[in-house]
Every structure is written in structure tokens, then in C-alpha cells.
Amino acid sequence: MNLQQLEYFKTVAETENFTKASKLLLVTQPALSKSIAKLEGELKVPLFEKSGRNVKLTRFGKLFLVHAERALVEIEKGIKELDEMVSDTTGTVSISSTSRVGAYFMNFIISDFLNDNPNVKFQFNQQSVTEIIEDLKKGKIDIGFYDNHTEPIWDINIESIPIKKQEYILIVPKNHKLAGRGEVSLKELENESFIAFCEGSKDRILSCTDALGYTPKISIQPKGANIGSVIEGLVSAGAGISVVPDSPTINTNTLSKINIKETIKERIIYMSYLKNSYIPPIAKLFRDYILEYVDRNYITSS
């Protein structure tokens, strides 16, 4: 059984006439009849029965037509999806990032790319570094993004390229006593309650103790995919203050951004992808866009 036989069967079922079907299919009637007979032989049931000069489906044919049409639709969808995958102007880019990178970086990159490529779609997940690496190896995603203080995650199969440094700032609610300051020393914050920007996982963000030089009072330690917006909401509500990566997404209508006097070791965002593996043209276009972004902006802060 092959795709051509299914198409022939469907057309005969629709026209109920071998002569009409053969003209639509641009095939001789004997060749069409032979193909249908072969299909019936494979299925071991009659699909059509004569009805005057025409034919009509048998009860076996009616049942098989439902599945044949469904199969043809699925095959057509598959062909369309494959066409999109190899297109350099349309299709879906499958990416994943750690939650911090998603909250403070990816939205701008994706938005800028879509401005120039409006027909592209993104499948965007937020995962741990380990999950990102595994999904790259399994071919579930095209590109992964994660951040790290020191060296990139080493894996012989994965290419990791540093694309941006993130510097840290202090955010406080507008009515906070420090709200009008342009710069603050970490030592001034010893009595403050902090909302910790960390997740308690293998890829957790900077150690608050190492960064501050003392063990801070942690009032809340939120977790989850939308950690950035959650922290900003909590700080805005006066639940505490927080040290976070600087980003244009921070709502300065409800929050004050204050530079930190001491140098906090910045985090580096990495782009990762599977080495020596096929990547769809549209995903390659996005990857190249990121690399161009690196050439223009790398090692600067937000």
C-alpha cells in the first residue's frame, strides 16, 4: 500500500466513477482499475461495488475511506511542516532557557527578531541547564540559553557561546528610603529584608552571602518560571528589596533601580546548540542573528 493508492481510492470514492476519476488523476482507466484491485487484494476486502454505470463504496470501503482521508490529511500536514522547517523565512524555532534568562533577556531578542521576521513562530520553554542540554541532544530544541558565573557547561556534543554579560542592581519600592539614591553600598543593606533571586537548584543565581559579604535576612525566596516578574511585584508591594540583573523590563514606575558601589561578579549568558547536527534554516537564521547581536553588544550590560 502506498500514498498513490490512497489518493486513487479517495478520488474514485468521491466521483463514484472510474472514468471521471482517471481523468482527474491524469492516469489511464486500466491503470487506475489495476491499482484499486491491488489495494483490495492487500486489504482482502472489496472496496467498491457496481451501481449501474457507476460504483459505490461497500461497507468495507466506507470504513476504510475514513482512515484513508485522515491519513492523507496527516501526510499533507507533515509535508507542510517539513516545508516550513526547511524554509528560511517561515517556520518554528524551538528554544529553551533558564528562567532567569527568560525573564531578563530572551523577550527582547525574540521581539527584535520577529520585527524583521514576522512569519516566524517560536516554541519557547523554560528549563534547568541539565534539561536544556538533554533536550538539545535529543533534538527536541534547536537552541538553548543559560547563564553561569564561571565557565560554560562543558559537554563534548554541545557548543556554548558567551553572548552577554549581566550586571546587577538593587531594586527597591518607590517609597523606600533609598529610592532616591543613584548608588548604594552593600554594607548599607545589612538590616534590610531581601527577596532572594535564586531557585535552590543546580543553576541557582549568585550566592547572596558571597555577593553581600554577610548573610542577609531573606524574607521570601520565590521559585518558578516567572521569577523575575514575581520578585518585582513583591518588591513593589514593599515585601523586601532585591539584587537582580539590570534589565529594561524592570518597571521604573513602581520600582527604583539603584547602582551597587561594589563590584559583583556578573553572570554570563550562553547560547548553546548541538555540534555537527542539522539545524533548520529558520533556526540557523535566528542563531546567526544572535551571533550578530554578540558582535554588536557582547560584554556590555543591559
Rank of each mutant, 00 (worst) to 15 (best):
L24P: 09
A21D: 05
K56D: 00
I36L: 14
G52K: 01
K44D: 08
K20E: 13
V45H: 04
F64D: 00
K34C: 12
A21W: 00
L43N: 02
V45L: 03
S35L: 05
K62S: 07
L39N: 05
K20F: 07
V27N: 10
T58I: 00
S22I: 06
L32Y: 02
K50Y: 13
K38Y: 12
F48S: 01
A37G: 11
T19F: 06
K34M: 12
I36Y: 09
A37D: 07
K23G: 03
K56E: 01
P46D: 06
R53T: 12
N17K: 06
L39Y: 14
L47E: 02
T28N: 12
S51P: 02
K23A: 03
S33R: 10
K34S: 15
K20I: 11
A37V: 08
P46E: 05
L32P: 00
P46C: 08
N54G: 15
P30H: 10
S33W: 04
Q29T: 15
G61M: 01
K23H: 12
K20A: 13
S22E: 01
K38H: 14
N54I: 08
K23M: 05
F64A: 05
T19Y: 07
E49P: 09
T58R: 00
K56G: 01
L43I: 02
L63M: 11
T19C: 03
L63N: 08
K50S: 15
K50C: 07
L57R: 02
N54Q: 11
P30L: 11
E40Q: 13
K38N: 15
A31Y: 11
K62Q: 10
K50Q: 11
A37M: 05
K56P: 04
L26R: 15
L63D: 10
S35M: 04
K50I: 06
E42C: 05
K38V: 10
R53M: 08
A21F: 08
K20S: 11
K62P: 03
L32G: 09
E49T: 10
S35T: 10
P46F: 04
K38W: 04
L63F: 11
K62H: 06
S33M: 04
F18H: 10
S35H: 02
P30C: 13
L39S: 08
L25C: 07
F60M: 02
R59D: 09
L26G: 14
F60N: 12
S51H: 07
L24M: 14
L24K: 15
K50P: 12
L32E: 04
L25H: 03
L43Y: 02
L26N: 13
I36E: 06
A21M: 06
S51L: 13
N17I: 04
F48L: 03
V27I: 11
P30V: 14
L26H: 10
Q29E: 14
G52N: 05
K34T: 13
R59L: 06
V45E: 09
K44A: 07
S51T: 07
P46N: 12
L47H: 02
L39T: 06
T58L: 02
T19Q: 03
K20N: 12
L32R: 03
K50L: 04
L57M: 04
A21L: 04
E42I: 08
L57H: 07
L24F: 03
L63Q: 12
L24H: 11
S51Q: 06
P30N: 11
V27D: 07
S35G: 14
K62E: 09
E40W: 05
A21C: 08
R53G: 12
T28Y: 09
S22M: 13
T19A: 09
